[in-house]
Design a protein around this nucleic acid. Structure first.
Length: 275
DNA sequence: CCCCAGGCGCATC
DNA sequence: GATGCGCATGGG
């Protein structure tokens, strides 16, 4: 494991002996869109209906105002702390080539996140033909308009039911343009159970993939994002322009180890986009 | 002001 | 099943 102990201290949960974890490299690399860095380096965000502020100092990570049950039930899986990155990184380094070595070194604290399938689905439908600042703006507008206000500030991600009941132009205020009908279709199929993440969880990645493509506005790229970031299918990975370019140039034969190529791809993506 | 953006649907071949 | 085009809108 990549931490030694998790203990509740006051209202907070504190992890000690943390390795292979960096807030910015994990929360602000284009996997998730609802995290903001404060001026003190802390990151605040909302997921699974809860808001949390995370502070990283030395080998200690603090989840503010978080009972240990919330860490165990939500954030542990969300931040992939059920996986051993020490071991995983070694495996990738051994099986892959020089470019992956550089990519691993470039992001020592990058972890694959495991997010809510519904939120990932909507977020990456919105992401198409757009850029990260704008994606964040659309998602925030969506949450402010249709999410639930939290007592500690911010809004939850709206439910499928709420979005499914909107009129065709009910999303005008989030300025999602031609993507709006896609969002509504995803919401209707999810609210009705036609697209059911809990049931799909039991199926093979390829079967889930086929179900995802039935949603209007979901193509190969978005479907792979949902498989990797939502369903945690780490053998899958999305191919966008950045990855396509980087793979063709540096890893033309593809990843040797297919088992974790979704995670390996995260390092390539982050490294390929470095300034 | 112009360019283009973590794609996709649709028409056409 | 492959290819090319238009897309609504804002961020750089």
């Amino acid at each position: 494991m990549d931490y030694l102990r998790a203990v509740q201290r006051g209202g907070d949960t504190v992890l000690t002996g943390v390795r292979f974890f960096n807030l910015a490299q994990t929360l602000d690399n284009g996997q998730a869109f609802r995290w903001r860095e404060g001026c003190d380096g802390a990151f605040s965000g909302i997921a699974f209906g809860r808001r949390v502020t995370i502070i990283h100092a030395g080998d200690t990570v603090t989840f503010k105002n978080t009972p240990i049950e919330d860490f165990e039930n939500i954030w542990k899986k969300y931040l992939d702390f059920t996986r051993d990155y020490s071991d995983l990184r070694k495996q990738i380094a051994v099986s892959e080539g020089e470019f992956l070595h550089s990519a691993l070194e470039y992001s020592p604290g990058l972890r694959l996140m495991r997010q809510d399938v519904w939120e990932v689905l909507i977020s990456f439908i919105l992401s198409q033909n757009s850029n990260i600042p704008r994606i964040k703006n659309m998602i925030e507008a969506l949450c402010q308009s249709f999410g639930e206000k939290l007592p500690c500030g911010g809004y939850t991600f709206p439910t499928p039911q709420v979005l499914a009941n909107l009129h065709p132009n009910g999303l005008n205020m989030i300025k999602s343009g031609y993507r709006s009908p896609y969002i509504l279709d995803a919401a209707k199929k999810t609210a009705s159970g036609e697209f059911n993440p809990t049931e799909l969880e039991k199926l093979s990645s390829e079967e889930i993939y086929k179900e995802l493509l039935k949603i209007h506005g979901v193509g190969p790229k978005v479907a792979e994002c949902v498989l990797l970031f939502g369903f945690g299918r780490v053998e899958r990975y999305p191919v966008d322009v950045w990855i396509k370019r980087a793979m063709e140039k540096h890893i033309p034969e593809g990843f040797i180890n297919k088992e974790y190529q979704g995670i390996a791809q995260q390092f390539v993506f982050h490294y390929a986009r470095r300034k």
